[in-house]
Design a protein around this nucleic acid. Structure first.
Length: 573
RNA sequence: GGGCGUGUGGCCUAGCCAGGAUAUGGCACUUGCCUCCUAAGCAAGUGGUCAAGGGUUCGAAUCCCUUCACGCCCGCCA
């Protein structure tokens, strides 16, 4: 159980008061407390729905109710206004708790109690046939951010990359690597850029020479029948490209706990066992030697309701192996979450049905995202219409370097490069993380490289400013007295800091990383307003201590939010 | 043909699941603020039929229905 935050305590007290007051006036109604626009109150009870039953105007009901309730405890004030009963939080109580909490818990501020629930979060899982582009990069960014949030919320999270090392494209690439000499220079001296050329060159050769087609088909047959030589070659080829892809992802602070190779399920016999069991299902049909499940009764609709799980030659398909993989997942975890492109929706519905037929009581939760396209259309490697992640990273870091150089003349070259890296990569990740996944994104350089307003640098800057103030503060009394924080900007900032824990929880439970990005932006804005108007270092005595306490609490909250977003929190910018 | 998703000022976006008080923030544009803890900032201003229509409700961006636009899917591919 998460310990009750001060705001939740306040809400409970209000709920008790309202419950009793409603009983007093004989109103049997469900009670809905809502959060009013900032400034009006901290919680409000709308009385409109009571008007009809009581045959009284909402505002007089509100006044009546307000008159029956007494402030006290966490409630400082109660007032009726415009048909609402407004409740005001006793600010000093909350402020002291929040301040003490943030200053003592530091990196752990806002964290949920550690839970027993294991979460296996599969993300990225791109086919290892070439460099990762921006269209696909939405997946690792959403996945990694969600993993960080879930961990801060207290879950035991394992992230996993499902490697497709079985299939025609892998065979083609492997064949190319083994038999061809490159006739072009790779864009970068990196294996993913090199291997994609082998892949493309091999594909061209396939169109021209029929005997190569036979060779590939033979390899494919061997691969699908678990021939150790071919399986080994395919796996090695994939691993080489995979290492290069991970190098790109690690530059944007994304790492993955575990890689599961698809070939494993062919080799260890689990796919065969799945096939045998599916064949016994009442939903199973056979057509010319190929088997499928009839899934119409599972709500699958469209032109095709068949879910084919073996070819005529008895070999498995991608979907069959994915089923074996998901059964393996559920043997290892309590909750499985997949981050997938929206093109996978039908496939996942079918997979869920197949899992049910297999007698597995669980199904994966899925976070779907829409594709990132370019102004001229969908990204396509084949049409050469892509923005590679590596290029975007370099562009972002370079641009950030120009900005640092413009602003700072006192820093070493090395320090400026470091800040540029942190800021550039942050801007890139934030720009993708801040948008709801189901919303389509059209990639524009000027948006991706935006360093002001709603961006990572805005949040990082607030953090850097907090650090800078603290660095200049010298000795101060860390048991700050929150009663001295009385201005609107101080109160607003404290309330924002207080909300961090529940924001993390909301993001985690709803699997919604973008909410954290929005929150961090709002938090930074509150902090900016605060330090613009409230002198900290020049304040005196206990007020100085209290404000420094608020600065440090802001610093930890900003830093923890940034960390959950996968961004580094620079000490200076 | 069917299914899923999206549609919020010139552009981007939060809110939608759990309906409420003047619809969130940014970009761009106009205008102020560096003798003051880093101006990647702060303050003020212009700009909105919340795709369209209907319904439910005291009250709808939010719920229901219809239509339109855009995206994605409906392989013995992965």
């Amino acid at each position: 159980m998460r310990e009750l935050g001060t705001f939740e305590q306040f809400r409970e007290q209000v709920a008790r008061e309202v419950g009793e007051a409603l009983k007093d006036i004989g109103a049997v109604a469900e009670m809905v407390l809502e959060k009013p626009p900032s400034g009006l109150a901290d919680l409000a009870l709308p009385c409109f729905h009571l008007a009809k039953k009581l045959r009284k105007a909402p505002d007089s009901i509100a006044k009546d109710l307000a008159g029956r309730m007494r402030p006290g405890g966490m409630i400082e004030r109660i007032e009726a206004r415009g048909g609402y009963v407004n409740f005001f939080l006793r600010f000093s109580e909350m402020a002291q708790t929040v301040l003490d909490d943030a200053l003592s818990k530091k990196e752990g501020y806002g964290a949920g109690a550690s839970k027993k629930t294991r979460i296996l979060l599969e993300h990225t899982s791109v086919n290892p046939t070439g460099p990762i582009h921006v269209g696909r990069a939405r997946n690792p960014i959403i996945g990694d951010t969600l993993a960080r949030i879930l961990r801060h919320a207290g879950y035991a999270v394992t992230t996993e990359f499902y490697v497709n090392d079985v299939g025609r494209q892998v065979v083609v690439m492997s064949w190319g690597v083994k038999h061809l000499k490159l006739d072009a220079e790779p864009e970068r001296d990196k294996d993913d850029y090199r291997y994609v050329l082998y892949y493309q060159q091999a594909n061209r050769m396939l169109e021209e020479k029929p005997d190569v087609v036979n060779e590939i088909d033979d390899m494919l047959y061997k691969l699908e029948h678990g021939d150790p030589g071919v399986v080994g070659l395919a796996k090695e080829t994939c691993e080489t490209v995979l290492r290069a892809i991970m190098e790109s992802l690690e530059r944007i602070n994304i790492s993955i706990d575990r890689f599961t190779f698809e070939s494993r399920f062919v080799q260890d016999g689990s796919v065969d066992r799945v096939i045998q069991k599916l064949k016994q299902s009442e939903h199973c049909r056979e057509e010319e030697g190929a088997y499928h499940l009839e899934l119409e009764s599972f709500g699958i609709s469209g032109r095709e309701t068949k879910w084919v799980f073996t070819r005529s030659d008895g070999t498995s398909l991608y979907t069959t192996r994915d089923l074996a993989y998901h059964m393996d997942k559920f043997a290892r975890t309590d909750i499985a979450i997949n981050v997938l492109g929206e093109d996978q929706k039908l496939g996942m519905q079918e997979l869920a049905a197949a899992l049910e037929i297999m007698g597995v009581g669980k199904k994966p939760e899925v976070v779907y995202y829409a594709f990132v396209s370019l102004p001229e259309g969908r990204m396509s490697t084949r049409k050469g219409r892509v923005v590679n992640l590596d290029d975007l990273v370099e562009e972002a870091v370079e641009l950030a370097y120009e900005e640092v150089k413009k602003r700072r003349t006192d820093l070493s070259e090395e320090r400026m490069r470091d800040i540029a890296r942190i800021v550039g990569i942050g801007a890139l990740r934030f720009n993708i993380a801040r948008i709801q996944p189901e919303k389509q994104i059209v990639f524009k350089w000027e948006d991706a490289l935006n360093f002001e307003g709603s961006s990572a640098p805005f949040v990082q800057y607030a953090h850097a400013r907090a650090c800078s103030i603290l660095a200049k503060a010298g000795e101060w009394n860390r048991s700050a007295d929150a009663k001295l924080l009385t201005s609107d900007s101080e109160k607003a900032l404290l309330k924002m800091i207080a909300a961090f824990g529940s924001v993390i929880q909301e993001c985690a439970e709803g699997r919604k990383p973008h909410i954290l990005a929005v929150y961090s932006q709002d938090l930074a804005a509150e902090f900016n307003q605060f330090y613009r108007y409230m002198p900290v270092l020049k304040a005196e005595g206990a007020t100085r201590d209290a404000r420094l306490g608020l600065v440090e609490a802001s610093m930890w909250t900003l830093r923890n939010a940034l960390t959950c977003l996968g961004l580094e929190a620079p000490q200076e910018m």
